[in-house]
């Protein structure tokens, strides 16, 4: 920035100072809100993690206990279980399935026939249905669909003779993760499909034509030309959905409350349960710190990918 001549400060008109200050004044309100809402609580959360504080003692100073909360959280065998549940069953499985299904569906829907037959509106309307459904409604709908007696899924399976009587999908350890993952993938798949479709439609058709003229078949075009061009979008979708899903609370909480037993407990539900069901705010905050450390590693990868691409 240019430095104003120091020899003549008196001549510097007031509006120059106003001009220099203006950008700060404009962005200040938002920055204050973000600082109070994110930075403040995040620091307070770290402090809480070193205290023992009951929900009923809020407003009073907690008892400082050093690393006790962390020692407890990290040695508790159920934490290991929630960590595996969160990373593998909640996040990795659903992110991979969303990418595979999303890519497949997007490639299918990108076929020129949909625009030639003027079916774009139908495709958009149908794909939007799960996306406009609030997550709570998604869980309600699937709980009903998966009901052991009255649910359509069981009625269908019994009808075709695959099973003899209805399965209570959410109450059995063998099926409960599949059921939760189905709810989550159903609600969150459209975002992936729509984002990949947008990227596909930005690929110039001349590229495909040129490859076809050079004798490439449809499969070669998809794998050698289209897929490499989608790589940046796929990388970003992967990291965004990973972060969103890792922190997700609502699907597991509403589908099973972490049950049967602790079988589907994830870090987010464990944190909530510790703070608001067991009333142990300090231990709950410690779970939060562990989660944010893991997330921090994810965020680093995210920015690494973004900046390498730019």
């Amino acid at each position: 920035m240019s430095v104003l001549p120091t020899s003549a400060p008196a001549e510097e008109p007031a509006h120059v100072w106003g001009k220099k200050l203006e950008p700060y004044l404009l962005v200040l309100p938002a920055m204050l809100i973000l600082a109070f809402f994110f930075a403040g609580p995040a620091i307070y959360n770290i402090a809480l993690a070193f205290q023992e504080l009951s929900l009923f003692d809020l407003g009073r100073e907690g008892r400082w206990v050093g690393f006790d909360n962390f020692a407890e959280v990290l040695t508790d065998p159920s934490t290991g279980q929630s960590l595996i549940n969160t990373t593998v069953w909640l996040t990795v499985v659903t992110v991979v399935l969303r990418l595979v299904l999303g890519l497949g569906l997007a490639l299918l829907l990108n076929a020129t026939v949909f625009s030639r037959w003027k079916l774009g509106w139908l495709v958009r309307s149908l794909i939007l249905v799960p996306w406009v459904t609030p997550p709570v409604v998604a869980v309600a709908a699937w709980k009903w669909l998966l009901d052991a007696r009255y649910g359509v899924v069981n009625q269908f399976l019994v009808g075709i003779g695959a099973i003899e009587q209805g399965i209570p999908f959410l109450a059995r350890t063998s099926t409960v993760w599949g059921a939760i993952e189905t709810m989550l993938i159903w609600r969150e798949l459209p975002f992936v499909v729509i984002t990949i479709l947008a990227a596909l439609q930005s690929i110039p058709s001349e590229l495909r034509e040129a490859a076809r003229i050079d004798g490439a078949n449809e499969f070669q075009i998809q794998t050698r030309i289209v897929l490499p061009l989608l790589k940046p979008v796929l990388a970003v979708i992967t990291l965004l959905t990973t972060i969103w899903t890792f922190n997700n609370f609502v699907y597991v909480w509403l589908a099973t409350r972490g049950g049967p037993g602790d079988y589907t407990q994830v870090l987010a539900t464990q944190m909530y349960t510790t703070s608001f069901v067991d009333y142990r705010m300090g231990a709950g905050a410690a779970v939060g710190v562990v989660m944010s450390l893991i997330m921090f590693a994810f965020a680093l990868i995210y920015f690494f990918v973004i900046f390498r691409e730019k």
Binding site: P23, F38, F276, Y302
Partner: peptide
């Protein structure tokens, strides 16, 4: 090109990746 613009913008973007769920205990207390 005001001083700090880049830092503030990166912070705004980074906040989008913030794990909101961990805020719930300290926010409740606050």
């Amino acid at each position: 090109r005001f001083r700090g613009r880049q830092t503030l913008l990166i912070m705004v973007i980074a906040t989008q990746l913030f794990p909101f769920v961990i805020l719930i205990t300290p926010l409740y207390a606050t």
